[in-house]
Design a protein around this nucleic acid. Structure first.
Length: 755
DNA sequence: AAACTTTGGTATCTT
DNA sequence: ACCAAAGTTT
């Protein structure tokens, strides 16, 4: 073996074949944990080192920005030349780059902003109002969904018109048309536009030629999750040389709802009849029991090319399933098992997976009660937090003054006395082809604004006048800090003096840090804004976290020695909305397959008979997927045997107290639980009775004891109910006339009430 | 005319 | 349990 080429070392035969394949189309069907990343990085290295391909001739598409960064790093370690010119990115980042270069030919030019979903929503609402379409019938979300469908299929409004049939869809199409006009006026692209516009661009043979000549070798990872637009982009780029390597696993296709088309991978050999197909079936991640479970489950799907995973890692431990009575108990059970596993394997990284983000809450509560640190991935994303979005609105407006959505957002926080009416007048005052700032300026000059609005709008315009100067003189982080202070945003939060405001200030500090990081990479404001908007959840995942909580979607591509899959109930998983169609159900099953195959050594599954969902106690049935697990992969057989579960065919919810008379099981349980909750609250009010309990009294070093009467400049008179933390973190709970508030001592400017 | 408060409706997954 | 619209107050 000593004469093996270093790039082929430790590879099995199909892996070697894949690495050494150079010319022509190649389909790599990579099962979960089959060493896919190793193979594609080595293959890129092989092209560079052995075939003498210049890194700038290679284009690799990954699913996340993080994956892109890792891939570049890993390739760099394998080759002797610098890899800066290697193009590795997500489809969206790639398209952004292209549009920034070639964008003069698109409706939005080169200096567009990227609209995230909340911007999209703001815009579509304006459009619906303009078209007088009631939001009751035309849910902004639904309309955006169908627009997204069209875009993902590369259909512009005129093209979609040919297939629009029913009245609702026709109206939605009108909205699409106006929405695109709106984006154009704002010089903005939504996520889908990035792909759509780039695909249009590549239809032009001269533009296409530039890039097909440049990128002689293409690699697309996660090919099973590409949509029509991405598919067409790939076709354009590979049209002449056919040096296209796609990697994927049809069993892990889980983005159908976002337009991904599993047929792209199923039909690859139809698109490229000369394609070579390689299957990677040896799994290096999981033990046999886990693979057995995964294989048995996925065998129930029909849309497959078919693979048989095998491993040399041995039998391994059986999976454990636990059925608990209630969601809280399920969370507590998970926490107990985590502690056990931690005792067994102190360094093992673990993950708790769930179908939807709302399921994380109960887990978080249980973990916090036990003081166990964890990392929550996804959920409310950092860059989508209100304060961060507000700050971004200022920065985006600075970078692109046409962006009216950002204008609205920036001018209303902190509030400047500009409400809907004044806003409409500003919008009306925008000169043809002008910016909202010019509109505000025109209105101000006309003298129609009075009092506070006049003063504040003047200051606001001045802020941006000065801001344009700051861009050239101050660094990125300095600019961000300048904007925070000069806009009055920091002042507003400090005045609030609540715990929540303190958290927001901390997030903004974090944002300034991110800006400083980007600055050190040489990024300027526009690039920084792109980066921030295109950042994904998993990009921020710290590998170091010992315990991570995330959705299955977020966990794709990751592995953990110990995995917990919670909420194995009908209507939760498979999700209620997916159970209607076969396709939906198959995708849910693939999702389960992805969840199972994240586990290296041990997999725990759990369900709860009862769970609070949307504020109501719901009774659930165990997930149908549990029935698909092979009995001998489980430690103990799954017991179905309670009356509740035998009684119904599908899941059912307890009747609401208002609709069904009498006492349903759920309402009864809710009452009992409510009593329990009250008892606990009572104990908290009298902490003396429970010395050394979980609810501990902080030592009152320099803090006011409870019962102290104080006065706050903001909220008036109040009584201290208690305090937590110390030093800068010292926080009082105060009951004011208007209700209870948590107030930071540092900012609250509390003083003893005189009398 | 804006800002604050309450109520009512609605919830997958995400680049 | 959360967010957004209607209702209410200044």
């Amino acid at each position: 073996m000593q004469d093996t080429h270093p790039l082929l070392r430790n590879l099995n035969p199909p892996q070697r074949e894949a690495v050494q394949h150079v010319k022509g189309p190649l389909l790599i069907l990579a099962g979960a944990g089959s060493g896919k990343t190793t193979v594609i990085t080595r293959r890129v290295a092989w092209l560079i080192e052995e075939e003498g391909v210049h890194p700038s001739s290679i284009l690799a598409m990954t699913f996340t920005n993080k994956a892109a960064g890792e891939m570049r790093e890993r390739v760099q370690k394998l080759v002797s030349v610098p890899t800066e010119q290697l193009w590795v990115s997500t489809f969206h980042s790639f398209c952004t780059r292209i549009l920034r270069r070639e964008g003069d030919r698109t409706p939005v030019g080169r200096d567009f902003v990227i609209f995230d979903p909340s911007d999209q929503k703001a815009l579509i609402k304006q459009v619906l109002a303009e078209l007088k379409l009631p939001e009751k019938q035309f849910h902004p979300k639904k309309v955006l969904e169908i627009i997204g469908d069209w875009k993902n299929r590369c259909l512009l409004p005129e093209e979609a018109r040919e297939e629009a049939l029913d009245a609702w869809t026709r109206k939605a199409l009108d909205a699409y048309s106006l929405y695109q006009t709106g984006l154009k006026n704002h010089r903005a692209c939504d996520f889908d536009d990035l792909l759509l516009h780039t695909e249009r661009l590549f239809r032009d043979s001269t533009v296409q030629a530039i890039y097909t000549e440049r990128f002689k070798y293409l690699l697309v990872d996660e090919y099973q999750d590409t949509n029509r637009a991405q598919y067409l982009l790939v076709q354009h780029l590979a049209k002449h040389h056919h040096n296209l390597c796609v990697v994927g696993d049809e069993d892990q296709s889980i983005y159908g709802w976002r337009g991904a088309d599993i047929r792209n991978i199923l039909d690859f050999q139809h698109d490229f009849p000369e394609a070579v197909q390689i299957k990677l079936e040896q799994n290096y991640r999981s033990t046999q029991k886990i693979l057995d479970a995964a294989s048995t489950v996925i065998a129930n799907n029909s849309q497959r090319l078919g693979k048989t995973l095998w491993t040399q890692l041995g039998e391994g431990e059986k999976m454990v399933f636990k059925l608990t009575d209630e969601g809280r108990l399920e969370a507590e059970w998970v926490v107990d098992r985590i502690r056990e596993e931690r005792a067994r394997f102190p360094d093992a990284k673990m993950a708790v997976l769930y179908r939807a983000n709302w399921q994380s809450r109960q887990l978080e509560e249980a973990l916090r009660a036990m003081n166990m640190p964890y990392k929550l991935v996804g959920g409310v994303k950092f860059y989508e937090r209100q304060e961060v979005k507000d700050l971004l609105a200022y920065l985006r407006l600075l970078s692109n003054p046409f962006d009216q959505v950002s204008f609205r957002r920036a001018i209303s926080s902190p509030s400047r006395g500009v409400g809907p009416t004044t806003m409409a007048r500003i919008a009306a005052a925008i000169p043809e082809g002008g910016t909202p700032l010019e509109g505000a300026w025109a209105l101000l000059k006309s003298g129609e604004l009075k009092g506070r609005a006049q003063r504040e709008v003047g200051k606001f315009l001045d802020l941006f006048r000065r801001g344009t100067g700051e861009i050239s003189t101050t660094g990125l982080a300095g600019l961000v800090r300048w904007m925070l202070v000069e806009s009055g945003y920091v002042q507003m939060l400090e005045d609030e003096a609540t715990l929540e405001a303190e958290g927001r200030l901390r997030n903004l500090e974090e944002f300034v840090n991110a800006a400083a990081d980007s600055e050190s990479l040489g990024l300027r404001l526009p690039e920084f804004l792109d980066r921030v908007t295109l950042a994904s959840d998993t990009d921020q995942l710290e590998e170091s976290a010992q315990l991570s909580l995330m959705t299955i979607h977020c966990a794709k591509g990751l592995e953990f020695p110990v995995v917990f899959m919670v909420g194995m109930e009908e209507d939760v998983f498979p999700n209620r909305n997916a159970r209607e169609t076969d396709d939906g159900l198959e995708e849910e099953r693939r999702l389960f397959y992805v969840a199972i195959t994240r586990a290296q050594h041990k997999l725990y599954l759990s369900a709860a008979r009862r769970r609070r969902m949307m504020g109501q106690e719901m009774l659930g049935m165990p997930s149908r997927f549990l029935r698909e697990l092979p009995a001998d992969a489980l430690e103990t057989p799954i017991r179905w045997g309670t009356e509740l579960y035998q009684s119904g065919q599908g899941a059912f919810s307890a009747p609401r107290p208002s609709q069904g008379g009498g006492h349903s099981v759920a309402s009864e349980l809710q009452r009992i639980r409510g009593m329990f909750d009250r008892t606990r609250t009572a104990a908290e009010v009298v902490p003396e009775s429970a010395p050394g309990s979980v609810i501990s009294l902080e030592p009152s070093n320099g803090s006011w004891p409870k019962g102290t009467r104080i006065r706050s400049p903001r909220f008036g008179r109040g009584v201290i109910l208690g305090s937590t933390g110390s030093g800068d973190g010292l926080t009082y709970t105060v009951r004011f006339e208007g209700g209870e508030k948590r107030i930071l001592a540092r900012f609250g400017m509390l003083e003893l009430a005189g009398d």
